[in-house]
Amino acid sequence: MLLPQHNYLQPASLNECLMALQDAGEFGQIVAGGTDVIFNMRLKLFRPKTVVSIRRLTELMQVEELPDGSLRIGAACRLTDLAENPIINDRFPAFSESIRSVASTHIRNMATLGGNICLQTRCWFTNNSQQWRQGKESCFKTDGDICHVIKSSEKKCHAINNSDTPVALIALNAELTIQKSGAKRVLPIADFFNDDGIEFMKLCPDELVTHVTIPPCNDRLIFSKYAARKGIDFSIGSIAARCNGEGEQTDKVSLILGSLSTAPIKLTKAAEIIQTKGLTDGAIEQAADTVRGDLGEVTNLYSRAVYKKQIARVLVKRTLTHLKNM
């Protein structure tokens, strides 16, 4: 499995990079750590004409504390560096946990935060070699007309958003800075993802995520991930749970589930139950019971749907219990 032919650009400045992206248009592909995109290219899932590396953009490799107490992180920061960053460890331990839970040490040594946020959605059909895919009809993502995972009349790709840090970042109300040549916009990360395996993020081909900004947070917050093995696997399910107050008392709760759908899922019913009843054992059970309903359609991708629903329930129950005792 070799890489398809392509031009490789390594711009030395952000401006140069944005121009290169504009030139390449829809035939361009950003590569950061490359731990995901290079592999997808080997699978011939993409055959970009121009690959634009952001590995030389030192301006996107800084972590700064802003005057308002927010933390601004460059999108090209390596996960290993962020996992070791004392400010992040001290102020946002749950975010730090989500970083450490990505893949393995070797991969985190290459991988970037931007790459993790923009991670391509995953599916056993598309994430196999081109020869392998010839065994079945092409799917929506591979220019075909069906989805192998859920066969319905709905024309939707059900690939999963399998990345870990966005789950914590959504709970933290983080914002993304997105730039293109001559323009810049800021978007809450909670609004960045679409419920679609193909158009899974609100990002145009000529745009680049440059920074992630996390506002101060004094609430209790936990990130937790369930995977088949320790320290390598993508999540079967992940969760970020946040609440204010102490002990059982709380009136602001947010629960985000990851890796169970095409986009991270916000659990509103469960959050409401805890908000009104507090973190009592009864309320936690009750909240956990609502999860199945809030999940919507769960696919068999990489794990059985029934099992994933059960894992989601367990994640909610265990993290809420953990929050209570925090």
């Binding site: 056993w124 196999n128 065994g135 088949a228 093995r229 320790k230 320290g231 390598i232 696997d233 990489y302």
Partner: peptide, 18 residues
């Protein structure tokens, strides 16, 4: 007859941690 997880990532073999 088609293998759905023909890779070392998806064919789950434990690691030394286990």
């Amino acid at each position: 007859g088609q293998f759905l997880n023909p890779s070392r990532l998806e064919y789950k073999m434990p690691r030394t941690y286990e």
